[in-house]
Design a protein around this nucleic acid. Structure first.
Lengths: 295, 295
DNA sequence: AGAATAGTGTCTTTGAGACAATATGCG
DNA sequence: CGCATATTGTCTCAAAGACACTATTCT
């Protein structure tokens, strides 16, 4: 106890009632593959603000009762109807936090966003606060063509001098809302969050084996390639992809079995693989021709 | 207005006073290079809990008045004594959020952590709540040798079945506290936050030009190499590094000038460069022999 | 003078990608 | 049967790393 007055001041500062309060929520960008296309889980809001608008599933963190990871898992489970067993094959990681004071019209709400990769799941079921829930194809929401977005990482640019908020890095919650991402129509800043989740997903499957999280436990190399093609939005060379995947140590391991039937329009039966024990791909599967895009 | 009762329930859920409150803070892992060694900015706590323990600089987000990025910049400026001009050359990006309910003994506090890269700064000055502030060499706090930590990314491992919290990814705030990072002695979970900040810094300079943020506006290739050597903790081949840096488009651009004097123990005067306009390095400067370390 | 350093040249190995070839099943 | 597909082979080019070499400047 160095200084009694200092401690009092400190504890006063810790009393949340001495300040205007901040609410904490989690929002989840849950991605899956359906019929070869990347889909995101959205809910239709049942109340103001943004009533009837589509939004990312999410909700309040239960103070004192759960961690952020647990809150995100709970919210995702509520919306997908999955139990602990079904969640076992879902990859969930933190994406970033969003805390602009004006992002929610009612009060200052800090949202911790999560990114989830899930295998093809049954239809979504609306949770408590939502009027509906559905898997929506992402290319409807975030059309390609914006080079900044398409190449993977949001950039700070044309910023006024000063702090490099978010820098040449992953996040930039202070980004000019006028020059926002093309994801329009989502409630709050969920369009931005979705865009950053997609960027992260596209980058992440380059150097981790997480693309396998979109597939069943056993899969063919062609199915794995279709994941990359859906997430990156471009066709890949089948032969080179095949050899490359098998050459990365720990990416996939053979099950010895072969698929029940050949390709949809003919061809030999493909061999089956399961995810290997690697947590990082080395060497990585770099995206083709990002050109000099991001200079 | 779909359902009046639903809206009432929703608004009630939004009233923070209907729930136990959660406080929101920002904490900053500020890194700099001093005498060729990587240092982190720490403050000595002036009040309980963890009184007299070292901690990351940080503080409360001012509800309704600032974004998370702004709060982090403000806290960093308070501790470093930098004005807006001095902060102009500091890179600041969000690292992740930490919200285990037991991470602060007094109440549920969600901390949004930031990572800062700064050029060599004058001595730190203690801010309001701190008894002292100092730049501390990181290898004192986080000795190398833990392969998980040293190779760059924290892994989830030995998790009980269920959600892959943090997955093979960047964060894992639910990681077993028993098997925590070797950063001991810091208040709260700041040892974990610091370790993840170091991991991120080591990974980030691979594929971004952010290593230049540790240097003055004009620098030599050798100085740039010393940044990589300090952050990665290993010697690099001078000749290959030199050629590699110059071959990556947009990484550095020549100023035409040469350094005032040669190397510290002899040698020709080095040419001076400044940071180029690239935001991503392509191809990247991959860390040497991460072996098969992370499998 | 001696030693360390800046910068460049050369060689080998690895990996990425273009392209070709072969075999296998579906329609 | 005809065609799409799975898988493997070959070739070329770029890049990483090991090593060598020269010129320069500090002590």
């Amino acid at each position: 106890m160095a200084d009694r007055r200092g401690e009092d001041a400190f504890l006063a500062a810790y009393d949340p009632r001495a300040f205007a309060p901040i609410a904490v929520t989690v929002d989840v960008v849950a991605l899956t593959l359906r019929q070869g296309a990347l889909h995101v889980l959205l809910v239709r809001r049942g109340a103001a603000p943004y009533e009837n608008a589509w939004a990312l599933p999410g909700g309040f963190v239960q103070a004192g009762r759960e961690s952020l990871d647990e809150a995100a898992a709970r919210e995702l489970a509520e919306e997908t109807g999955l139990d602990a067993g079904g969640m076992g094959r879902v990859h969930l990681e933190q994406l970033g936090s969003y805390g602009r004071p004006d992002r929610d019209p009612r009060m200052h709400v800090v949202s911790v966003a999560y990114l989830a990769f899930a295998p093809d799941l049954p239809e979504a079921m609306a949770g408590s606060d939502a009027a509906a829930a559905a898997w929506v194809p992402v290319d409807v929401l975030a059309p390609r063509g914006n080079p900044e977005t398409a190449t993977g990482r949001p950039m700070e640019q044309g910023r006024p001098a000063g702090i490099h908020g978010g820098g040449s890095g992953r996040r930039s919650e202070d980004a000019d809302p006028g020059a926002d991402h093309p994801c329009t129509g989502l409630a709050f800043d969920h369009g931005t969050i979705l865009a950053e989740g997609l960027d992260r997903a596209r980058a992440k499957i380059e150097y981790t084996p997480l693309a396998t999280a979109f597939l069943e436990e056993e899969f063919t190399i062609t199915e794995l390639r279709s994941v990359y093609e859906a997430v990156w939005g471009r066709a890949l060379h089948a032969g080179n992809f095949h050899r490359k995947v098998l050459s990365v140590p720990g990416f996939v391991e053979s099950t010895g079995a072969t698929a029940g039937r050949g390709g949809s329009r003919g061809g030999p039966r493909a061999r089956l693989y399961r995810a290997g024990d690697a947590r990082l791909l080395h060497p990585a599967l770099l995206r083709p021709d990002r050109e000099d895009s991001v200079r």
